[in-house]
Amino acid sequence: MTDQQKTLPTDQSVDAFLSTITPVSKRTDCEQLRQIFEEMTGYPAVMWGDTMIGFGHYHYRYSSGHEGDSFLVGFSPRKANISLYFATGPEREQFLARLGKHKTGKSCVYINKLADVDLLVLRELIVHSVAFLETTYPRS
């Protein structure tokens, strides 16, 4: 038996959600992030839960038997910063070393504003993350 997954895709409008983000500078950054993520993944933006914007989709199953669904990459505007979600694969650190000003959590990369990071490295990180996850968890 699997645990009930909390964060799933919704029918909520990404545009409507983005329009609620304050301050305007964070909204502008998130609108630009949406364009970058869509361009680099080829997937449309989809709301996952109430505050996460995800691109693409994969199904994972761990050796423990735990399984679920998630977006390949995504982001979420938070009160203090913007959370970026990428794969945690072994090569992620080489991208993060070149990304610019950020902090990291287990699977999150936190930035204050888009101007703090190198957008070319961000694009590389998106492509790498999608390729890593699609290779690790191929569609059946």
Rank of each mutant, 00 (worst) to 15 (best):
F71I: 04
Y85V: 08
G56P: 01
H102V: 12
L122Y: 03
G49M: 03
A97N: 15
G105S: 15
R123Y: 05
Q94N: 14
H66K: 15
A45Y: 05
D118M: 09
L122D: 08
A87D: 14
F71M: 06
S83K: 07
I126E: 00
I126D: 02
G49P: 03
P90F: 06
T88Q: 06
I111D: 04
L84I: 11
E124C: 00
V121E: 03
V121C: 07
S70D: 14
S70C: 13
Y43W: 07
L99F: 13
V109Y: 08
G49N: 06
L122G: 02
K101Q: 15
R61A: 14
Y60L: 12
Y85Q: 05
L120K: 14
L96K: 11
G105K: 08
R123A: 15
V109A: 01
L96Q: 10
I82D: 05
A97V: 02
Y60S: 12
N112Q: 14
L119P: 04
H66W: 10
Y60P: 00
A97D: 15
R61H: 08
L125T: 07
Y60Q: 11
H57Y: 07
S70Y: 13
L125E: 04
L114I: 07
S63F: 08
V46M: 04
D50I: 09
E91L: 13
D116H: 09
K101P: 02
S70L: 15
W48G: 02
M52Y: 00
L119E: 01
G65W: 12
Y60T: 06
P90R: 14
R123C: 11
K106E: 12
L72G: 08
F71H: 07
C108V: 15
K79W: 06
G68F: 15
K113L: 01
G56S: 01
F75P: 01
H102W: 10
F95L: 06
S107Y: 09
H59N: 13
E124R: 05
L99A: 13
H102K: 10
C108G: 11
A80R: 09
I126S: 03
Y110V: 00
I111Q: 05
G105T: 09
V127K: 09
V109L: 06
L114C: 10
A97M: 13
V121Y: 03
E67L: 08
F86A: 10
A45W: 00
H66Q: 14
S76C: 14
S107G: 15
H102Y: 10
G56C: 05
